[in-house]
Amino acid sequence: MELVIRKLCKSFGGHFVLDQVNLHLVSGNIYCLMGPSGSGKTTLFHILLGLVSADSGEVNGLNGERISAVFQENRLCEAFTPVENVTMVMPSSGNNKRKAREALKRLLPDESLDRPAVTLSGGMKRRVAIIRALMVPFDMVIMDEPFTGLDEETKQQVITYIKEQSAGRLVLISTHQEEDVQLLNGIKIHL
């Protein structure tokens, strides 16, 4: 997959959040989008996800491609368990529960898997959101500050998991931390 963004612009109330953004992204790489708060990272992600339309510019390469996402907010269904939160987005299949449980066990304690998400800590919820994004079939995954609320050890585990599950696909991650680029073996891009 090849994603080409040309001269992308988006403004809110006359203020340009994205101004002539150009990017060229290719499958098999992890791109780390760097930039201060308010630089338009989330807006760019929302345009790519089809949640917001751009004022002008072009986005090529998304036709028919499957995009998955970790939102800036976890966006979990809080009354449901981590297993249910993962299976609800997976295409229907007989062994979704088993697959979801196995994936969740890698990053979460066993006892947390059957509790409503509302009872989980912020870091646990973040991990559920990351696993959910990686358990659906995808060609590209967008992750908006996925390491928020994770301690260093957990972050390492999550990075290993992301690299393993997204191999060969296009990964676009926003982060504030320079060290994340090295940990992810990523390519740094600035907005």
């Binding site: 089809g50 949640l51 996402a69 966006r75 609800m88 229907s92 959910r132």
Partner: peptide, 13 residues
């Protein structure tokens, strides 16, 4: 609304 956007992104039935 954010959950509905999530459902759109993941193409939930």
């Amino acid at each position: 609304r954010q959950l509905l956007e999530m459902a759109d992104v993941f193409k939930m039935s």
